[in-house]
């Protein structure tokens, strides 16, 4: 474990807590894409399949349980909670996210480190996570006024993988043979997808204005 990875995990945890805070306290998921939440639930379900077969540390297992539990409970809240589900703007959140799942699965069947069931699904989860934010970014473009919590959620979610990139550089420099191109490229693409969001987020923060993405 290194400081970059810890910062990444804490940033990721913070993003999840911000979203749960928003949904649980003000019982609203306005501006949040259910499609992105469903994709993230699939990402964690396919990435943490080894949670019962391989143990690294209490921390590792605990964080996996937190991410699995939070992503599925957010999907449950947005789909079935009587108050929250009413605040979900269904007609704006129209990204065909299933069109992201299949290409990622096909790509994982083609490009992976080992052709085993767990490895292919793990690779699939990396590819899917890289594009999972797209429905949310599209929804943000359509939602005129983005509330602070939603903006912070997306900002933190985008930042965590950026810290992971620093972690990969650090591990590449300090651990011999630590080379994982698939993880690195997927992580880089994922972070780059946030580039314009980060730009407008900083602009709004600098000018102390409401966050608005250009249509």
């Amino acid at each position: 474990m290194n400081i970059f990875r810890l910062a990444g995990d804490m940033t990721h945890l913070a993003s999840v807590l911000v979203l749960l805070l928003k949904i649980h306290t003000i019982k609203s998921c306005a501006g949040v894409s259910l499609k992105t939440q469903e994709l993230y639930a699939i990402v964690f379900a396919t990435r943490y399949l080894d949670i019962f077969t391989s143990f690294y540390s209490i921390y590792n297992t605990l964080m996996k349980l937190i991410f699995l539990g939070s992503s599925f409970s957010i999907v449950w809240y947005m789909r079935y909670h009587k108050t929250v589900r009413r605040t979900y703007d269904r007609e704006q959140d129209t990204f065909r996210h299933w069109f992201l799942v299949l290409p990622c699965l096909l790509l994982a069947l083609l490009i992976h480190e080992k052709f085993t069931f767990l490895e292919v699904l793990w690779t699939f989860s990396l590819y899917l996570e890289a594009v999972a934010i797209l429905p949310q970014l599209v929804l943000l473009q359509r939602t005129r006024n983005i509330d602070n919590l939603t903006g912070q959620y997306v900002f933190l979610l985008g930042g965590y993988r950026g810290f992971y990139i620093l972690n990969w550089i650090y591990r590449y420099l300090t651990e011999p043979h630590f080379v994982h191109w698939i993880t690195w490229i997927a992580g880089l693409v994922q972070t780059l997808l946030y580039a314009d969001f980060f730009y407008y987020y900083f602009q709004s923060w600098k000018n102390n204005k409401k966050l608005q993405l250009p249509a």
Binding site: Y56, K64, E113, E119, N167, V179, H180
Partner: peptide
């Protein structure tokens, strides 16, 4: 070994 290593990340 190295591939196993990658799995220690979240």
């Amino acid at each position: 070994k190295t591939t196993k290593e990658a799995k220690d990340e979240l």
